[in-house]
Design a protein around this nucleic acid. Structure first.
Lengths: 296, 296
DNA sequence: CTCATTGTTTGTCCTGGACAAAGTGTTGAC
DNA sequence: GTCAACACTTTGTCCAGGACAAACAATGAG
């Protein structure tokens, strides 16, 4: 557990091998030990710093100014965002985060269930789950919770959303929507939130889960006579790759099928793509749906 | 859609860039075109052959004898396995596969639901879902269904299993089991099947979903006072990597916490690891559970 | 301030070499 | 004939160091 080979570091941090080597050459960090074969072995604390760097890059920092900096200076860089962006957290959300942090599975589930019943599915998603996931993401960004806790949270919410959606039964009205994520995007919580917003409106939502290759999406959309294809991107997904993927998918789809794209990766970027409906917020989904139904 | 850069081919086929280049050097295949910057562009039909090669490798063929061979010869190689291994398929399973192939979502769901009610959760999993997933995997291997259809099937089964498990409520008896997959393994159907087998026995199952880093698993297992950690591996996961991961996880866990490992990746390999309970079949889970309860 | 131009940073790709681990085949003992 | 030990071959992954276009920042003109 003390030192990892380069392939493991790539998997754990999401930083490609090539980039790890070029950083070492240019910025003198990381500086892995070498084993008897001369291969790189990254000590745990350097991997930790690499994870931190990844977060900072996602926040918009540039490698030249942070890779070589000492770890303490980097930790400080995370703070401003914390102070600036952190609203006086909703007490309900703070309580839920505590449950996650303390591994109180049973209570977490019960509390979520309670909110769900009180708010109804759509408001539960847009008013609680969405800000809560953002808060969890931030807490992870600041090292306040671990990966396991984040996974635990995601699982519970997924279970809740899936069973709510299931109990609604298959929608019967148009449009028919095919939902999935592109290759490289494994997070499906966003997708489920979309489904939870739309299913109560009688929409026929079919999800393919994560990472469907472009060609297969297009094929399935035609075969299944769908009206709309919806894809979602988490904050962790590189924005450029997202836009490239959306453009390619738009080209692969017949003009008669609409393409909806949303998620944290697209926020803040003002880039627009022709003939693609970009969804900035969950609530916008309902407007987009109304528009579509008017037009068809 | 006509030619893909090397990074896209890696994503689509699962074959690493390094391997693609070394195959080109050694076996004169693939032979990508070069763009004006001198970078490789893989024509669609070569990518198709690469996908086929990937399937054959998973079946146990070796690169030296298949990479250079013409596509037609390779297609023929897939047949024998089909003829030899294919039992006179269970009519129920064949009917379900047809529903998947034809994108009959509503009927698929209804039929599955029907089987579930008839068989009960545990038999539904061990007698229907397990052989069905194997059959789906084979159908994909032989190109009879696409990625989208496979995803569709997985989603439906997941929804069904998750809501059944949810409706059981949290178990109250010991042991407490923490379930997840290791980094690189994104398939969680196996995990859900395990949970579905154990939850009716009153076991407290907590799932972290896919790809939890080793260190976080160990941490969470200690923090949550779990008795057992269970990990699963799909057929697509490379066996060597699985064994290495299991060994590392065993070392990271305190001796008081048991480690259970199972899944298609471990089948056929007779390798045993000390102090790890290897689960060959789903039914063995119940025996393992009985053993654990006797011993504790 | 807005837009176009120039300079810098940065990720990804390239070549060709190396080597250990996994796999295959052979030999010899029982 | 079966099994274990050995040598040989195959194969994936790593390495170094160079190159370049796309993204980004800085500068200057209208």
């Amino acid at each position: 557990m003390s030192a990892l080979p380069i392939a493991a570091v790539e998997r754990d941090t999401g930083i490609p091998k090539d980039t790890l080597r070029v950083w070492e050459r240019r910025y003198a960090f990381p500086q892995p030990v070498r084993d008897d074969k001369g291969e790189r072995l990254y000590p745990a604390e350097q991997v930790e710093k690499l994870r931190l760097l990844r977060r900072l890059l996602d926040q918009g920092h540039r490698p030249g100014s942070i890779v070589a900096a000492p770890t303490e200076a980097l930790a400080a860089l995370l703070e401003p965002a914390g102070e600036r962006g952190r609203e006086p957290a909703d007490p309900g959300i703070a309580a839920l985060i505590d449950l996650v942090r303390l591994h109180r599975s049973a209570e977490l589930r019960a509390t979520l269930q309670q909110h769900l019943v009180k708010l109804g599915l759509q408001r539960f998603v847009s008013e609680l789950v969405a800000p809560l996931s953002r808060a969890i993401g931030e807490a992870w960004l600041h090292g306040e919770i671990g990966v396991a806790e984040e996974h635990l949270f995601t699982e519970h919410v997924q279970n809740l959303l899936r069973s709510s959606i299931s109990s609604l039964g298959t929608g019967s009205r148009s449009p028919r929507i095919l939902m999935t994520t592109l290759p490289g995007e494994e997070h499906i919580l966003g997708l489920l939130m979309v489904e939870a917003m739309l299913a109560p409106e009688g929409v026929q939502c079919i999800s393919l889960g994560a990472q469907t290759p472009l060609a297969d999406i297009a094929q399935a959309a035609r075969d299944g006579q769908f009206d709309i294809v919806a894809v979602s991107f988490s904050a962790a997904f590189p924005a450029r790759q997202a836009f490239r993927g959306i453009e390619q998918l738009r080209d692969a789809l017949p003009a008669s099928i609409a393409l909806w794209a949303g998620g944290a990766a697209l926020h803040g970027k003002r880039k627009r793509i022709d003939k693609v409906q970009q969804i900035a917020q969950l609530d916008d989904l309902l407007d987009a749906l109304t528009d579509w139904r008017k037009a068809n």
